[in-house]
Design a protein around this nucleic acid. Sequence first.
DNA 1: GACAAAATCACCCTGAAGGGTGAGGAATTA
DNA 2: TAATTCCTCACCCTTCAGGGTGATTTTGTC
Lengths: 207, 207
Amino acid sequence: MSGIRVLVVEDEPLIAEDIRETLDNIDFEVSGVAYDSDIALQELAENTPDIVLLDVNLGSAMDGIEIADLINKKYQIPFIYLTSYADRSTVDRAKHTRPMGYIVKPFDDRDLFTTLEIALHNFSESQPKIELDLELLNSKVLAKITQKEFEILISIFEGKTNRQMADQHFISLNTIKTHVKNLYDKLDVHTRTQAIAKLREMSSYHA
Amino acid sequence: MSGIRVLVVEDEPLIAEDIRETLDNIDFEVSGVAYDSDIALQELAENTPDIVLLDVNLGSAMDGIEIADLINKKYQIPFIYLTSYADRSTVDRAKHTRPMGYIVKPFDDRDLFTTLEIALHNFSESQPKIELDLELLNSKVLAKITQKEFEILISIFEGKTNRQMADQHFISLNTIKTHVKNLYDKLDVHTRTQAIAKLREMSSYHA
DNA sequence: GACAAAATCACCCTGAAGGGTGAGGAATTA
DNA sequence: TAATTCCTCACCCTTCAGGGTGATTTTGTC
């Protein structure tokens, strides 16, 4: 079993129970089922699910999208919308809440399983971590960055000082300085913070 | 019309044409249709689509997942898998390629539309940009960070020097220094790069 | 072995960052 | 009004980063 805890927020008991069964079958744990927004908030606070299945249209105080807003603000856990219709304006409202998935009813076990798997995986990948890939970097930079320079770039990225790097790599402080200088030339920057900003920039855009 | 250019990679001509029609109806532009991986690669190189609809099972040299790998390596554009089945191992292989969506056949116009919209939106949001949110930050930090300090933190994040910040904010260099010092105390760091690293760290984890 | 590329190190100098202390003025609130 | 918080600024001092130049050694490749 995966042990992934799922909160189901769905005001239609029949569908909710169907989902619960499906989740049982595909090895997810249901941390709770909420029929309205009040229970949903309570469940979120008390049972800390790993992911939320969220019906967009709840016949309660808050609808799914409002709950999503709150999840983003308070909990930062991924959620997947369930909806029986998907008009333009709903999609527009919904997408601004950055759902990790969107399932249009009717859906079957496979839909649920794959969407959950992908959503969880994407979520863990979506954490603001910069993909530090030498090859990718070299395809976007003036001169080729060498292996050692790359290691040093990572250390800079991690907030290390030149002294710390020297100790860590067992080489002279002067050597570190040389590498850093060459790195700056290649990245076309002049300070370490600029180098970091450049890294972000380069991994953000595609040519 | 949205003007979003979609590449369809699907070896079954009937389905491919159906998708093309659907996309026309929902205001997406089809940049090309590829029936095998060779054509797909060519289309990717020549027509620079904004997003790719990718059949997992292609009867050609590379399957959809291999194409996805290549997209990640070379183009970094979002893609959505289309598949008629979704067994455990396929899902496992697929999710490592970080698709922005996953549609299980049969699907209808609504599925396609919402998945495309969400995928595109999530993609633009997923760019490694750190969500700099003062409230969120303050919930994770020793002492409360003030508005001005926050502005300065953003400037540091962007690679600015103290001098540049002083000019930009029309205040004295000494004042910037004071703010920076206070900021370091609150973030429990000692250098700007450490502050940036701390920011990444804090926006990566949820309590 | 010759050559090129990468890694190693040194020295010097300037400027920026980091850290300590103190202090005045504005705005908010008790 | 007194207290508090925040923003503002100054001075001093130490450390670190950044930039220029040049040199040796190691490594891999033709």
